[in-house]
Amino acid sequence: MIDRYLARSIAVPLIGTLVLASMLFVLDKMLRLFSFVIDAGGPVSVVWQMIANLLPEYFALGIPIGLLLGILLAFRKLATTSELDAMRGIGISFGRLLRVPYIYAIALTLLNLGIVGYIEPWARYRYERLRFDLQSGALGAAVKVGEFNRLGKRMILRIEGSEKDGTKLRGIFLQVDEKPGSTVAATAEEGRFLATDDPNTILFRLKKGRLVQQMDKFAAPRSLAFDSYDLPINLPAIDKFRGRGKNEDELTLIEVFRRGYSHRLAADDRNRAQANTNYRLVEALMMLMLPLLAIALAVPPKRSTSSLGIFVAIVMVVTYHKINQYGEQMGAQGRIDPLIALWGPFLALLALIWWMYHVVAHRPGGQPIGALERFFAKAGKLLKRFAKRRPPTPAP
Rank of each mutant, 00 (worst) to 15 (best):
G245L: 09
L84D: 05
I323Q: 01
R192S: 14
G327F: 00
R88N: 05
D230A: 12
I106W: 01
N324C: 14
K381Y: 03
R192C: 07
L157N: 06
A21R: 02
A298H: 07
E83G: 10
W343Q: 08
P13E: 02
L235T: 09
R303Q: 11
L84Q: 09
I119M: 14
T167V: 14
Y118F: 11
L231E: 14
W122F: 12
F25T: 13
K153Y: 06
F173V: 08
L139H: 14
R258V: 01
T167S: 15
V299E: 02
L108P: 11
L61K: 01
L281W: 04
L151S: 11
T201H: 15
A266N: 09
E255Y: 01
L293T: 04
V282K: 00
K384I: 08
Q329A: 11
V100L: 09
T201P: 13
A138K: 15
L134D: 14
L211M: 15
S93V: 08
Y320G: 00
F386M: 15
L372K: 10
T187Y: 15
A266K: 07
I295G: 02
I15K: 05
F204S: 11
E178Q: 13
L111Y: 03
R303L: 08
G166W: 02
A225L: 13
G365Q: 10
I119Y: 15
V299A: 06
D197N: 13
Q214V: 13
K384H: 09
A21F: 15
L253Q: 00
G344H: 09
E57M: 06
A220W: 03
L194T: 03
L157G: 05
T319K: 01
L372E: 09
